[in-house]
Amino acid sequence: MSKKILELKDLKREFIVGSETVRALRGVSFDVEEGEFLTIMGSSGSGKTTLLNILGCLDKPSGGNYILDGTDVKNLDRDELARFRNHKIGFIFQSYNLLSRTSALENVELPLLYNPAVSSSERRERAMHALDSVKLAERYDHMPNQLSGGQQQRVAIARALVNEPVMILADEATGNLDTRTSYEIMSLMQDLNIKQKKTIVFVTHEPDIATFSSRTVTLRDGMVIKDIKNENVKNAAEALASVSKTEDDKS
């Protein structure tokens, strides 16, 4: 049996808004094993974002346990959480969140800047390597505004990879992209998952995207209502090829 990367035990998160208590998560439990490609689905208000914040160590649960790579996050203070994010997690956001007027290479280097163990020459080398692995070797010195949406998201993926995290956490990473580019990104994610054995947790509300993952957890009203293994994982590269083909036919 492979190693458990994530363990969620009866996870609860409550917010106090005025005099009311909003229960965003009402006891979520599931485990993620190393090398899994998990999608978390759910409509808005289902507690998806709250769960994502907790998984990303940006927030702490008000009840239950969240164990990431063998450490219970509950016991960590603000600085330890930051270090944990730096070492264990690679974030990918819907709106890319690249620093403007900063080259692709420097954007990718960013997480390593906060890791004092990495020297500046190693930093550069690892950032180049990460950009190469998302097929942007030609674009080191381009600024984000000189890159397409798909390219920007690939820079963001390289940034998520550069620290060699135990888990990649994607928040609607294809939300701002057209179908074709979405498939490109998903194909890249599948590559990372299969070839580099990266654990990926992908939050989305598009069922289409979920079909590329190996497992789907569906949330509603702060609880898990479905947790199914995907027996028939679609290949994103093939989907991409068929989209290109249809487009070619049209033209």
């Binding site: 940006l58 930051a82 270090r83 994010r85 730096n86 956001f93 620093l99 960013l110 906060y114």
Partner: peptide, 16 residues
């Protein structure tokens, strides 16, 4: 602010 949020999410501590 957004840049600060990003830096924090990828591991910048408050002191950084």
């Amino acid at each position: 602010t957004k840049e600060i949020g990003l830096r924090m999410s990828i591991g910048a501590r408050g002191i950084d």
